[in-house]
């Protein structure tokens, strides 16, 4: 996990998960929560231009 920011995000996810589904379940889900938190960090760190618009379905020319 990427530094303090990543750790904070995982902790925040675990806290929400514990509140919603209980501590035991939050621990069961820990690896899924960590993977998603890491994905959020990586995506946020990737540089984009304003011309990078969201994906649109392909159309046949």
């Amino acid at each position: 996990m990427k530094g303090e920011r990543g750790k904070d995000l995982v902790e925040a996810f675990l806290a929400i998960a514990s509140q919603r589904w209980g501590e035991e379940e939050a621990n069961v889900l820990r690896s899924a929560l960590e993977r998603t938190a890491e994905a959020i960090m990586d995506v946020e760190d990737f540089e984009l231009d304003l011309s990078d618009e969201p994906w649109r379905p392909p159309r046949k020319a």
Partner: peptide, 17 residues
Amino acid sequence: SSGLLVPASAYVRAQRI
């Protein structure tokens, strides 16, 4: 469960990538 926690801005950013 983890998808319910993804911020909208991160989802849109993934679609921009």
